[in-house]
Every structure is written in structure tokens, then in C-alpha cells.
Design a protein around this nucleic acid. Structure first.
Length: 516
RNA sequence: GGUGCCGUAGCCAAGCGGCCUAAGGCGACGGAUUGCAAAUCCGUUAUUUCCCCGGUUCGAAUCCGGGCGGCACCUCCA
């Protein structure tokens, strides 16, 4: 089995072959940093972070870049509106973006190039396009001439003619063709400006990606990613510029992820569900779709209600090319599914004395965890599940299909624990077997970037004072239980439940408790 | 108008011509376990069925045609 990747350019899944053996260059279009990151901004990074993890596991040396577009009309307008400098606004919004990526466990990005650090590279590329006759200056602007590129439209499968049929292209008599787009825009007084052969100005929207990609990864790269919405015009234009400038194939595999949408905006859900309770997360999307820029960051709008790991797992539970229907309800369901894993890890630690998060897991497929020493049946089941997981990932990063195997592994491991009553007592051999089994699970979990560290329990769980009180209460409860005073024992448990504290009795030893 | 995508159980979701008498999760219902619970394990929950109607094929949820329904982009939004 080998990796296959869906290529937007050909509209087919293709065998994955890199330009340079063993190496992968990957560029993902990042945000224009003019407002706080919304949940939709997290989709691409999470997906491509997962792609990188899997490619690395598969033995590739991957270079992964996400650009930060820190000069743009929207940014300029927003800064003026707020009365701050463009740079101050961009810096603040970039920091917010990075914060959120960190919370989502996206940390495989090698470099975040800033558009404003590469103005020179853009000017060079623009000049080259003019020299080759693909671009022309016009009143201080520079435009790309789409009709000089025979291939123009090959990514989004549109022809220049068909685009004329739409109503969107505003008339500009000056441009040679209405579809021509700006590579360089002259600046008005008070706007950020850089000197250029055509006068002071700033780059057009698409040129920064072309210039930075070529500068940092080379004229031809393996993977270029982004949201489906960017396919046209952004990627189409990037493609045209880059190939006309370099004369080489720009991108080997174009990967586009589906967009997130709010339940409120889908007739399907809106018609059937009675949404209730907190919905600021949905509002964040709805607001976005309605065109009003949300003021709240993901951090406050979403992560206040849902653990980032649940959000990440949710994003990966469906295929990356499908649209995903965001709702608090859906994420809450995902979170419930994850709880079972956390409990398994807690159990594991109690039995073996080792944290499931500190296990050494293989980082490449070649060094995959050995099943040696496991009972035959367990080895067979785990082996099959691992194979199926990897098979799904090999099939265009089918995380949704892969994840099912994680749940089955959980079931198999829990079965081993239950059958052998490991919670009562475990031999060193049994501990070793359990450790191997959990290592296999963790090996796969790291590929989708989850279960890397313990999820932060809600406030109070690690508060010494609360822990002390709980210890006292449970001690008293243990006393009345010994006296078989069930009424009192149940009252304590029920009342705690009302306070969102769940008590679970353990056969021998102190009861467990957790806050929700 | 142009370019695409989608329609699988109560909900989410995998499935890319035979291993589908269709993964997995959430929910629900039984059973084991428990003082009772919780957690865990076992079982049941689409078995003339994969929106409908035709067709191709030895064989289709999977391919083709036609409906119906939903969605996205073509508006510098990831």
C-alpha cells in the first residue's frame, strides 16, 4: 500500500511522488491578519499539520510553511478604523492566530514568512513577468495579463470567457482584459507604501504567496494547500504568476480542504434541530458567513466551551475535503467520545504507574511498535487495526476512516484489562503487555496529533484546598459505606453530582472523583 | 448564467465495482459487573437497504442518464 493524494488540478487521486526523493515541500495559505482568528482559520492548519505528521511518519523529510499576509486593503481599512498602525494591528492579530494554533496542537510548521519581509522578492517576480510580456504597468499599478497565459483557468476549470459571463468583474476600461488582476497597487497618501519601479505602492493579493513559496521552497513545490474558497481566484492567480515567471511546474499536488459551516446556515440542520443554550461558537461562524467581521477570537468564542483537543478531533473526524458542519452539539458529542480514551489512560497509569503521555512511541512507520510478547489474539487484533488505520491514511489522508480504528483499539485494550482484572492486580508481564498495547494506540494517535499531553481538568481538580475537602468527604463516605449505610452514601454521591462532581467507587481503595 | 460538491441508521460519519448479509462515534435498549450507581465488557439498534426512477454489468451504496433536495465558489473570506 502506498500513499495516494487527491489533486485538485487533475480532479483525481494520484500516487504520491515527490519532486526530490524523500523530501516534501508544503505551502499553506495563511491568514490575512486583520481580525481575530475564527474557527474556520483553524481547519487548514489542523489538516495540514496532520498531513505533515503522516508524511513524516511515512519517512519523508517535510518542510511546512504557512504565510502571514500582513499587508492588504482590509488590514489598512481596519487599522484606520481602529486608529492604530497597520503593523500594530497585524502583530496583535498574528499573535492571536499563533496562540490558537498552539492550543490546537498545531506545531509542525517550520516557518511563518511575513509578506512585508518579502516585498523585494515580489518586486523581482513582477519585473520578471513584465519582462516576459505577462504583465503591464498602468498608472502606477501593475496587472497580470491573463490572456498571455494559455493555461489560465486550469486549476478551477474556468475559461476567461466564461468568467466574463458572470456579473462580478467590474468594468475597468483601462485594463486590457477585465479579468486581469493587480500584481502591484499604487498607494494613496497615508497608506503603507514601498518604493518600486512603478512608483510607491503595495503588493496585490496573490503575489506574496508566489514570491515567498518560490523564495523559500523553490520554483516547484510538492504540496500547496488552502481552503476550497481560495481555489479561485487566489490559487488560480498564484499558479498563473508563478508558472509564467519561472516557466516551471509550480505545484505538484494542489490540496483543498472543505469549508466549515454553521448549522444555522444549513437548511438541513436548521430545519430539524432545535438549537439551544450557548451558541457563541455558531454565532462566530454565522457572523462570518453573514459578512460581519467577528470581534472575538476562537480562544474566547470556542475554547471557553470546548477543549481544543475535542475541536481538533472533531475537525479530523470527517474527510478533509468535505464541508464540516460546526455546532456546539457536534463537538460535545466528540468530546464524549474522547472521554473514554482519557479514562483508559488514567486506568493505565493507575495499573502501571506510568503516564500514557510519557510513553516513547515510534515516530516512523519503519520502527512501528513491535507486538512481540503480546498474546496472539491481542497482537492480531491490534495489528489489523493498525493496518487499517494506516490504509485509511494512505488513501488521501482519510482521517475519518482511520479514527474508527482508534476506538476499536480502545475497546480491545479495555477488554484485555477487564478480562484479566488488571485493576485488582497486574503481573509485570501483564503490565508490559498493556504498555505495548497502549503504545500502539499512542503511535497512531500522534499521527492525528491527539493525546499528546493530559487534558487540563477543569479548575479546582488540582486545587489543593478542594482536593483536601474532597478527600475528607470521600473518607466519611467510605466510613458509612462500611457500615452499609447506603442512604447516607448515596446522598453524598447525589449531592456531589448536583455540584457536577462525579464519584466513582473503586473495588479496593479510595473512590475516584472528577469535575465536569 | 458559469464551475464544483453533496444526499448512508434518531444524530455525526467511513465506504471510490465483488472481502457490504454497509466501519466507527454519540444516543437508546437488553445482559454481565456493582449494595445501588458510574466506568468497563458482551449483545441489539440500516438485513428486500444506502434520496427517487431508469440504465451499464455476471455483480452497484459505489459507474452512466434523468428527476428531486441541499451546499459552496464565481463578491480579495481559510
Amino acid at each position: 500500500m502506498s500513499l495516494r493524494v487527491y489533486n485538485t488540478l487533475t480532479r483525481e487521486k494520484e500516487a504520491f511522488q515527490t519532486i526530490e526523493p524523500g523530501k516534501v515541500s508544503m505551502y499553506l495559505c495563511g491568514p490575512t491578519v486583520y481580525k481575530p482568528a475564527h474557527i474556520g482559520h483553524m481547519v487548514g492548519p489542523v489538516i495540514f499539520d496532520t498531513v505533515k505528521r503522516y508524511l513524516t511518519y511515512s519517512g519523508y523529510d517535510v518542510t511546512f510553511i504557512i504565510n502571514i499576509t500582513d499587508v492588504d486593503d482590509k488590514l489598512i481599512n481596519k487599522a484606520q478604523e481602529k486608529g492604530v498602525t497597520v503593523k500594530a494591528l497585524a502583530d496583535a492579530m498574528t499573535a492571536d492566530y499563533m496562540d490558537n494554533l498552539q492550543l490546537m496542537g498545531v506545531d509542525t510548521i517550520d516557518k511563518f514568512p511575513y509578506a512585508t519581509d518579502h516585498i523585494g522578492d515580489m518586486l523581482e517576480m513582477i519585473q520578471k513577468l513584465i519582462d516576459k510580456g505577462h504583465a503591464y504597468p498602468l498608472n502606477g499599478d501593475v496587472y497580470f495579463a491573463v490572456t498571455t497565459d494559455d493555461d489560465y483557468g486550469k486549476l478551477s476549470h474556468r475559461s476567461v470567457d466564461s468568467m466574463m459571463a458572470g456579473t462580478r468583474v467590474e468594468a475597468n476600461d483601462q485594463k486590457r482584459n477585465p479579468a486581469d488582476f493587480a500584481l502591484w497597487k499604487s498607494s494613496k497618501p497615508g497608506e503603507p507604501a514601498w518604493d518600486s519601479p512603478w512608483g510607491p505602492g503595495r503588493p496585490g493579493w496573490h503575489i506574496e504567496c508566489s514570491a515567498m513559496s518560490s523564495k523559500l521552497l523553490g520554483d516547484s513545490i510538492d504540496i500547496h494547500g488552502g481552503g476550497l474558497d481560495l481555489m479561485f481566484p487566489h490559487h488560480e492567480n498564484e499558479l498563473a504568476q508563478s508558472e509564467c515567471a519561472s516557466g516551471k511546474c509550480f505545484v505538484r499536488y494542489w490540496m483543498h480542504n472543505g469549508l466549515m459551516q454553521s448549522g444555522k446556515n444549513t437548511g438541513k440542520v436548521g430545519g430539524q434541530h432545535d438549537r439551544h443554550g450557548d451558541s457563541s461558537a455558531e454565532d462566530q461562524i454565522a457572523g462570518k458567513l453573514a459578512g460581519s467581521a467577528g470581534a472575538e477570537s476562537v480562544k474566547t468564542a470556542v475554547f471557553a466551551h470546548h477543549h481544543p483537543e475535542a475541536v481538533r478531533f472533531f475537525l479530523l473526524s470527517t474527510h478533509y475535503r468535505s464541508p464540516i458542519d460546526f455546532s456546539s452539539e457536534n463537538i460535545a458529542n466528540t468530546a464524549k467520545g474522547l472521554d473514554g480514551f482519557y479514562r483508559l489512560f488514567e486506568n493505565f497509569e493507575r495499573i502501571t504507574g506510568v503516564s500514557a503521555y510519557s510513553l516513547t512511541v515510534p515516530t516512523t512507520r519503519e520502527q512501528s511498535t513491535s507486538m512481540e510478547g503480546l498474546p496472539a489474539e491481542l497482537a492480531r487484533e491490534l495489528g489489523e487495526l493498525r493496518d487499517r488505520f494506516l490504509e485509511a491514511m494512505d488513501d488521501d489522508f482519510n482521517t475519518g476512516g482511520a479514527i474508527g480504528n482508534l476506538f476499536e483499539m480502545r475497546r480491545v485494550i479495555n477488554g484485555y484489562v477487564t478480562q484479566n482484572k488488571l485493576e485488582d492486580a497486574a503481573t509485570p508481564e501483564q503490565k508490559a503487555i498493556l504498555t505495548t498495547a497502549v503504545t500502539v494506540l499512542q503511535e497512531l494517535a500522534q499521527l492525528i496529533g491527539v493525546f499528546r499531553k493530559p487534558v487540563q481538568k477543569s479548575a479546582g481538580a488540582d486545587d489543593e484546598f478542594v482536593a483536601g475537602l474532597m478527600g475528607l468527604i470521600l473518607e466519611l463516605r467510605a466510613d458509612v459505606r462500611r457500615e452499609k449505610n447506603w442512604a447516607a452514601a448515596d446522598k453524598i454521591r447525589d449531592r456531589l453530582k448536583e455540584l457536577n462532581v462525579t464519584v466513582e467507587d473503586v473495588k479496593d481503595g479510595p473512590a475516584r472523583w472528577s469535575r465536569s
